[in-house]
Amino acid sequence: MDSNFEKCTNLIAAAKNIVVLTGAGISTESGIKDFRSKTGVYHLAPEYILSLDYFFQHPKEFYQFAIENLYHPDAIPNSGHEILTRWEEAGKVKHIITQNIDGLHQKAGSKNVIEFHGTMKTATCLNCGKIYLTEEMVYRMQTMENFYTCSHCNTKREKEQYIKPDVVLFGDAGEWFSVEGFNRILHHIEKADCLLVLGTSLKVTPFSTFPQYRGRGVPIIIINKGDTPYDHQEGTYVIQDSIGKTLLEMDK
């Protein structure tokens, strides 16, 4: 057995408070596109299409792109998601903090999940706060002209009653971007005895800063097919391989 892999397996076996950071790389193994690779979402369109400005200026086009590329109701959790659920049930994994908006961690049965960039499961009226399921938004798209305008409230300015998907767009701020939300995440990370990073390049701020807040001497295990800024730091163990396959081998 590879000594690096063996060390990682032993660290996870000994850990009692693992905090997991996940990105698109764990979901690609369920057939969902990532964002920045050659076949990713941003290869199809510029990042600007997922900005708050674009949403307000072109709501129909925004929704069409988002439903086609970000909404995956039929995606199924893979072995990576399932093992994290098992480790959570065993009391080993305490929190999963994810950049993903696909809900696959919850589909797999994980309970303590922080969706840092929001979710594609719902959308909310910016005026009255009515929540719409995304299935309902798809139906509205097929049957209504101004489907993106709330049917339950009225304001003088139509844009104030737009129904926005509950994802964090560029120029946007989600519930975890508040001081209180950020501090709750840092509290979890500070208490961790092992940080497990899965399928993220840790290059998008502020998510990329989270490992900096771990306790002194706390190891980071990174399973990701690309490089990250943390790869060569002391106490960091890197495995550039499939997440599902690697976690399955560690779970034996």
Rank of each mutant, 00 (worst) to 15 (best):
Q106E: 08
Q106H: 09
K245W: 01
N146M: 10
I239M: 02
G171Q: 04
E6I: 15
R140Y: 12
T98W: 01
I239E: 01
K7N: 02
P165N: 00
K191P: 04
G174K: 08
E47P: 01
E6S: 15
G103R: 11
N154P: 06
P229Q: 00
D102T: 04
S51W: 04
K191M: 13
D251C: 04
F207I: 05
D227L: 11
E29G: 02
T155L: 05
I49S: 03
G118V: 04
E158A: 07
Y71I: 00
M137G: 06
A45W: 12
V138A: 01
T246S: 10
G118T: 07
A66D: 12
L198G: 08
G31M: 06
A24H: 00
K7Y: 05
V93I: 10
R214S: 05
Q106L: 05
E190A: 15
L196K: 03
Q99W: 06
T149E: 15
V238G: 01
A123P: 02
G118C: 11
L104N: 08
N183P: 06
N78M: 10
V113M: 04
L52M: 13
G215S: 12
S110Q: 00
H188P: 06
D241K: 14
I189R: 04
L248C: 14
H72W: 13
A173Q: 13
N127Q: 12
P211L: 11
G235P: 08
Y139K: 15
D2I: 01
Q106A: 03
V197R: 06
R36I: 09
G91S: 09
K38I: 14
N100Q: 06
G181I: 11
T22K: 02
A66N: 10
I32E: 01
T98G: 01
A15R: 08
A75R: 10
H152T: 15
K38W: 05
P59V: 00
R36K: 07
D2H: 10
F182C: 14
V238L: 08
R184W: 10
R86C: 14
K159D: 14
